[in-house]
Amino acid sequence: MKVGNVPIEIMIAGAMLIAMFAFSVIFGLPIVYPTGVRAAEVGIHYIFPLLGVGLLGLIIAVAGDRDVAAKFHLATPCYAAVLFAHFNIKLWIPHINSANYDALYWQTDVWAGPLVAGSIAIRESILWLIPFEANFYMISFVALFYCSFLYHAIRTPDHFGTLMVAVLLLQSLGTFAYLIAPAIGPFVYEDGINPMVTAGQHAMLEFHRGSITHGTDWIADNGGAHFTAGLAAMPSLHSAGAFLFFLFAWHHARILVPLYSLFLLFILVTAVASRWHYLIDLPAGIALAWVSFRLANSLTQRKNDSEDDSRTIDGEVALT
């Protein structure tokens, strides 16, 4: 999909990189590169997502049509650029906007205590099926990601480009949404249900506090090894991503809806039960997903209309 002669995927990635460089210059913040051998904060090795993307690209190249494969191979480096900017900006949040809304969001959890307790009870009730060490919070999200791209690339190729744009928009808009009313997360008030997650949260909190105390030098020296350690509760991008994939399934892949409903419910419940997120973070993430979905569809429709007009004009010229 193009705006003028520039693909929209490149425009989104370029805008994110420009924003990252602008924040870096304006606030004197160091751009860091991932140096760790393991994404400790999310519990997976960096190589697995890379292998997954490579395998996904190979399958799409073989089983999908040429246009879909071209879209995938264009969007993949764009998404990598967006993620690079995303994680840098996420590390910089307390230096860009020093305000903190944890107390306000925590009060909403206190008011809605039964919903928090219900989320914890639901997560506890399925420990026999999905134990803590399964890391299913991340695995289910990654599964939604890969399954959606594979299904829409092969079965609904007309919507594949829209999905790619929607994901890029979601990640980019979510990055800026973090800066509006930032918060760390409810685990600063109470531990979540999963002791493994709690340990990771406290490690991330230690980096966060070190960043505030020691400033940019601390980020430059430690940011690479903790590239994914930035804390941002509002909005929940995992909830947003899960709902975005659910939206595409609802509109274009009804066969996936039952499975995606279960994954979406698990992610929403676990986000609260593990105390990654306040309850209010979830509807904010869902709203962000809806905006990204609608905006991507609008951009796609404009592109299709533009191409149709171009064909009509070319046809009339040929007839004359």
Rank of each mutant, 00 (worst) to 15 (best):
K2S: 13
K2P: 02
N5R: 08
N5Y: 08
I12N: 06
I12K: 03
I18D: 01
F23K: 00
L29Q: 00
V32A: 02
Y33K: 01
G36A: 15
A40Y: 12
I44R: 11
I44L: 13
H45K: 05
I47G: 05
I47Y: 10
L50T: 11
G54H: 01
L58S: 12
L58H: 09
I59S: 12
A61W: 15
V68P: 06
V68F: 07
Y79D: 00
A80H: 05
A81G: 04
N88H: 13
K90A: 05
K90I: 08
L91H: 10
W92M: 01
I96N: 10
A103E: 10
Y105W: 12
Y105K: 00
V110E: 08
V110Q: 15
P114S: 03
A121F: 07
S125E: 07
L127D: 14
L129P: 01
I130M: 02
I130G: 10
E133G: 04
M138W: 12
C147S: 15
C147E: 08
H152D: 08
R155S: 05
P157M: 11
D158M: 05
D158T: 15
M164Q: 15
V165D: 02
V165Q: 05
A166L: 06
A183H: 04
P186G: 03
V188N: 04
Y189R: 01
G192K: 04
G192D: 11
G192P: 08
N194S: 13
P195E: 06
P195H: 04
L205D: 01
F207L: 08
A225D: 11
M234A: 08
A240S: 13
A242R: 10
R254P: 06
R254M: 03
F263S: 09
L265M: 14
L265W: 12
I267G: 00
L268R: 02
V269W: 12
T270K: 11
H277R: 06
L279E: 05
I280G: 05
A284H: 00
G285M: 10
G285C: 09
F293Q: 04
L299A: 13
S306Q: 14
E307C: 09
E307K: 15
S310Q: 14
I313G: 05
